[in-house]
Every structure is written in structure tokens, then in C-alpha cells.
């Protein structure tokens, strides 16, 4: 019980000011690591402010002081009771070569599932095109249904003019932003218990399967491989990883076989989701450049074996990167 309120306020205020200073410092420099003595002092100040608030709550007077103290205790509570790992200073190389592939491998089952869904979509799209060539008007976007593959190859190989001349940079950024948007949507659709993510992946597979069968049926397999492999070897896995993130999100939402509450499940996966989608964005930047500046050139400007070889090298490197990179570091749950 407070006997003399004024004396109480006068004696306690320095401790509140000190606590406020500590909180300000922590907020301004998230990477600040106080020593043990400073942590103990911080804890003492928090407990003292909490006790003061408890005493003051019963008082009718000093509503402003009560509100101030309430906000102070709330801020300190957020810092003291935070059990998640402190945010480390961002190291881009370490993140890309360690954290990203490690996170990918941690959720490998979800990735395998995205591959299966996409293959199912490919088979469906391919089968639909083979069975009913007119279905290409439904399954193929971006005007691919408007021209026969052999006609397109004839025009591209004629090389009368560079149809992307003067537009390469804008075309490249358009591809990057569009694909990143598609990836984010695929991830975000995980909130539909992953049903939306599965549909998006299946639809992507349908498009891919339809185009592949269309070109193969027209005898343009070499052109198709030379056209798709250089950028597709990165772009398609990127979309699959976005789908992987969506499935991880959907799984956490459903919580099969887990006793932890929804909030704990979401809290556990949120760093992984950000890592996966950021990795996808990096991959799509690369794919955008390749698609605009490399994939769109065909024979006689660029031999097909160069393009196919380049694409295959990318596939191998990506596989090695995702399966091996960062293996020497011990994997922990909080990464």
C-alpha cells in the first residue's frame, strides 16, 4: 500500500526512467548484447516497475502515470519474455549458402509433394493437348496457342530481326516481378489449408505439360529444350519452392498430428517461410535475366547445344546447391 503517493512517485520515477532508457537502447540497436550484470539490472527494473504498476492500479489519482507505467511494463514484458532467438545481424552470403538450403532440406517432404502435384498437372495438360489439340486455347497462356510451334521456330530461326531489341531490360524486370508475384501468391494460398497452393501448382503443371506435348508433337523437341532449359531450370524449381512454402503454411494451419496450439505452430514456421520465399525471389531474379538475355536467342545466333548444356549445368548446380550447401553446419530448429 502506498502511504504517501507523492513520495512514492518521486522515489520510483528514476527507476522508470532508467528502464525506459534500457528499452530505448534495445529498440534502437536490436543487435545489442548486454552483459549479465546489465541483464540482471534490466530484470530488476522490470519487476520493480511491474510491482509499482500493481500498487498504482488501485489508485484513483495519477491516471497519466498509470497509463505511462502500463505502456512501460508492456514494452519491458515484450523484451523479457521473448523466448525466440535474437535477430542476428543479416549476413547475405551466410543466409544464401547456409540458411536457405538448410531450410529447404528441413521441409524436403513438402517439396517432394509439390513435384508430384506439378507432374500430375503436366500429365493432365499433356494428355489433354494430345487427346484434343483444340484444348491448347484453354491450357496455354501468353499467346502460345495462337501459333504453331514449327511456325514459331521457323520465324525465330529466320532471325530477321531481334524482336526484343530495345526492350530486354524491361522484359527482364517484367518477368522477374511477374514470377515473384506468382510465387508469393502460391505461398499465400497456403492459408486456404494449402488447397489454393495445390491448385496453383497443378495449373502450372498443366501449362507446362500442354506446351511440352504441343512442341514435341510438332517435332520441335530440340527447340523446346533450348528455349525452356536455360531459365526454366531455375524458374520452375523456384515456383516449386514457393509451393513448398505454401504447403508448409497449410500444414501448420491444419496441424496434423501436432499437439501444439495454432499460434505456436505458426510462430515456429514463420522464419522458414520468409527464408524460402526470399530464396525464391533471388532465384527468379537470375531466371529473369537469363530468360530475357539468353533464352530468347536461338540458332543460328546461339547453337541449341549451348543453350541445352547451359540449362543442364544449371540443373546440376541447383541440385548440388539445394542438397549439399550448408551441410557442414549443424542444423538447429531455430534456423
Amino acid at each position: 500500500m502506498i502511504i504517501d503517493l507523492e513520495k512514492f512517485l518521486a522515489s520510483e520515477r528514476p527507476f522508470w526512467t532508467e528502464l525506459e532508457r534500457v528499452l530505448e537502447r534495445l529498440a534502437n540497436d536490436p543487435y545489442h548484447r548486454p552483459d549479465l550484470a546489465a541483464v540482471q539490472r534490466f530484470h530488476y527494473l522490470y519487476e520493480r516497475a511491474a510491482a509499482d504498476l500493481g500498487k498504482l492500479t488501485t489508485f484513483a489519482s495519477e491516471p497519466d502515470t498509470r497509463r505511462y507505467l502500463e505502456a512501460l511494463v508492456a514494452r519491458a514484458y515484450g523484451e523479457i519474455h521473448e523466448t525466440r532467438d535474437q535477430q542476428h545481424r543479416f549476413a547475405p552470403l551466410k543466409w544464401f549458402f547456409h540458411t536457405f538450403p538448410q531450410t529447404f532440406r528441413r521441409h524436403a517432404r513438402a517439396f517432394h509433394f509439390t513435384v508430384l502435384i506439378t507432374i500430375a498437372g503436366c500429365l493432365f495438360g499433356g494428355f489433354a493437348t494430345w487427346l484434343d489439340p483444340d484444348s491448347r486455347h484453354v491450357t496455354m497462356p501468353f499467346g502460345h496457342d495462337q501459333i504453331k510451334p514449327s511456325e514459331r521456330v521457323r520465324r525465330e530461326e529466320a532471325g530477321e530481326r531481334d524482336h526484343l531489341a530495345g526492350h530486354k531490360a524491361s522484359f527482364s524486370t517484367m518477368l522477374m516481378t511477374h514470377n515473384t508475384q506468382v510465387s508469393i501468391t502460391t505461398l499465400a494460398l497456403g492459408m486456404t489449408w494449402a488447397v489454393g497452393t495445390i491448385i496453383a501448382l497443378f495449373y502450372n503443371g498443366v501449362i507446362l505439360g500442354a506446351i511440352c506435348v504441343d512442341y514435341l508433337a510438332d517435332g520441335q523437341g530440340k527447340f523446346l529444350a533450348g528455349w525452356l532449359l536455360p531459365h526454366g531450370s531455375i524458374e520452375i524449381p523456384a515456383i516449386l519452392i514457393a509451393g513448398q512454402a505454401g504447403l508448409v503454411l497449410g500444414r501448420a494451419l491444419i496441424g496434423w498430428g501436432k499437439r501444439t496450439p495454432l499460434r505456436a505452430r505458426m510462430r515456429a514456421i514463420s522464419p522458414d517461410l520468409v527464408t524460402l520465399i526470399s530464396g525464391v525471389a533471388v532465384m527468379l531474379v537470375w531466371a529473369g535475366f537469363i530468360e530475357a538475355f539468353f533464352s530468347q536467342y536461338h540458332e543460328p545466333v546461339l547453337p541449341y547445344w549451348v543453350k541445352i548444356g547451359f540449362g543442364l549445368v544449371e540443373v546440376v548446380l541447383l541440385t548440388v546447391f539445394l542438397s549439399r550447401s550448408g551441410r557442414e553446419t549443424k542444423m538447429t530448429n531455430d534456423e
Binding site: 515484450g78 521473448e82 525466440r84 535477430q87 499460434r263 514463420s270 517461410l273 520468409v274
Partner: peptide, 12 residues
């Protein structure tokens, strides 16, 4: 839960 807001939460 009234805890510190993390960057990953803001991104998501």
C-alpha cells in the same frame, strides 16, 4: 502475445 515484433512476422 505482446512480445517483440519480429521481422519475419512483418514480412509474412
Amino acid at each position: 502475445a505482446g512480445l517483440r515484433l519480429h521481422f519475419s512476422q512483418i514480412v509474412i
